[in-house]
């Protein structure tokens, strides 16, 4: 490791707040990019299963797809 201590790694000779802030913001955006579609897919699958079951007696499909895809 280039830095001697955790404190030195966090401080980065005065540039630490800038560097770590950039990485934390990036991490937050990347996490949102990956979790948002997974969450939407789960919600959509639940909604579709419900619709299929409701319409099963009427011989229809999942006709009422809501806004679960975020569209």
């Amino acid at each position: 490791m280039y830095f001697d201590s955790v404190h030195a790694a966090l401080a980065m000779e005065g540039h630490g707040p800038f560097v770590w802030a950039a990485y934390v913001i990036t991490l937050a955006v990347l996490a949102a990019m990956l979790t948002a579609p997974a969450r939407r897919a789960r919600r959509l699958r639940r909604e579709l299963a419900g619709n299929f079951k409701r319409n099963a007696g009427r011989g229809g499909g999942a006709n009422e797809v809501g806004n679960a895809s975020g569209t």
Partner: peptide, 10 residues
């Protein structure tokens, strides 16, 4: 995958 699921809902 989400978009395909939404379009193929029926």
């Amino acid at each position: 995958r989400v978009e395909i699921l939404r379009r193929e809902a029926r």
